[in-house]
Design a protein around this nucleic acid. Structure first.
Lengths: 261, 261
DNA sequence: CGCCGTCTTGACGAATCTCAAATAAAGTGG
DNA sequence: CCACTTTATTTGAGATTCGTCAAGACGGCG
């Protein structure tokens, strides 16, 4: 049922792409990788999970996991054992209501931490899926906690990370509760822009990794509405759209839109 | 600006009810109260902040704070120093958008913890206001962290509490993003019902401490819509409404409504 | 008693969803 | 690499939900 988090030996690179009805769970490889060799360690620090404690993070045996587009990292009901730091690629997290409706609760980029929803109940209540080929580090949570007990700085940054999650989600609530469709999409684009910029990518031109439907789901809108808004923003000279390539032409106007309504 | 969290000596009971334009910040009194004497400690455990570690919680010098209806416990921008456990009464937390719009992000009952939003930035980004006369315990966060380093069980429950917050908020997102007005209100009522029940109150009849406008704000609806829905639910025999007294007549139907839509 | 904040209710309009059809893009097998 | 299938996107027209504006009722309080 559950794929192993404890990875096998240093196998070069396994691809267990079994085509079953449900997507493959995950693909384990390359155990115990030092954080210092990770391209994302500056961002990982930003996400809060190592901060000044980078050297000591070595104490946590991280397992590198490869995901192919569409692979599931964990799903609701899976036992929680580890947090996952994205090294490469991007993921979405999805919640499912009792009546089967889905909502994309977040879109996650390199350096961000996934899986916090499992801490409370020792069971994940959401699902994480790769939006493109990706690589994540599994951080066994008992080891994370152990390190937090030893190292004050690390503890602080763990707490910051968790609290950051709370604040971020509250802002999504605020968006869903108070903004109209236009404003939601504009603020979504600006959020992406800012996050790409932090990662050294162009803040004004980027590739959406989600479908219109997934974007809509995240924003509480239907895909048609998202599509129409892209068209309208284009007509109004705010952005350029070529399929999933988005270019922000008039940032200020987008900001204005979010504010003014 | 900020009221002291470090309480003065055992002053009997101060009421610094200064009537200024903005509501009084808070009212400090009765320092260093043992958790074991608190009526809420069973619930506080549930909220996650003491768990098995109850006896050791004595190591944290808690300050009891009295709030009168409408008083602000903390507001956005206040420096974060402590978490607050509600002993008595209830509070709402409010977020404010850049353009001045407000949203009630949560409604909180005895045994619940407030203030987690401040952990990340050392500054609160939301506001907490008493909906009725209330009493809360301030738990200095540096002491909380210190205890978490010493006591594994306490650490675990602190983490559970923070993660619980994340999960709860995600569920609100889910509600705001996927449900229609009817469903939102029904699920709000059922949530309240369940939380009252846990606290030993009737799950089928209770007093709303919020105005229609506040409820609407929390659910992403206008007050008129909330009012109309109460009327409709009443007509349909789902609930009885007498001002703010609500009686759930047909729970199953409410559940059904949430599911089916 | 009369004011004020809260709540209810109606009529209307705007925003968004639903349904539907056409087009574009991506993936598949030969 | 092409033809074909599948999936994603765009766009339109009409239905629905919810918000807006407005008027009146209720209830607490000085």
């Amino acid at each position: 049922m559950e794929a192993a988090i404890v990875a096998p030996a240093v196998t070069p690179f396994r691809r267990e792409q079994v085509k079953t009805a449900r997507p493959v769970l995950r693909d384990v490889s390359r155990p115990a990788l030092a954080c210092s060799t990770c391209h994302q360690h500056a961002l990982c620090a930003r996400a809060g999970l190592d901060a000044d404690a980078l050297p000591r993070l070595g104490h946590i045996p991280t397992t590198r996991i490869r995901l192919r587009k569409g692979d599931t990292l964990f799903r609701a009901g899976d036992r929680f054992t580890a947090l996952y730091a994205i090294r490469l690629g991007s993921c979405k997290t999805v919640m499912v209501t009792d009546d089967g409706h889905e909502q994309v609760s977040g879109y996650h980029m390199p350096g961000e931490i996934l899986g916090t929803d499992g801490i409370g109940m020792d069971v994940h209540d959401s699902q994480a899926i790769a939006l493109e080929d990706a690589e994540v580090c599994a951080l066994p949570f008992d080891r994370v906690e152990a390190l937090a007990r030893e190292d004050v700085a690390f503890q602080r940054s763990l707490h910051r990370m968790l609290a950051g999650e709370i604040v971020r989600e509250r802002n999504v609530m605020l968006m869903l509760g108070t903004m109209r469709a236009e404003q939601r999409l504009a603020s979504f684009l600006l959020d992406l822009s800012q996050r790409y910029q932090v990662r050294g990518y162009s803040p004004s031109e980027f590739l959406l990794r989600m479908t219109r439907e997934e974007i809509g789901s995240h924003l509480g809108l239907k895909l048609e509405t998202v599509s129409r808004l892209f068209s309208r923003f284009h007509q109004d000279g705010l952005i350029e759209v070529h399929g999933r390539i988005i270019k922000l032409v008039d940032r200020d106007a987008l900001h204005q839109l979010v504010m003014t309504g």
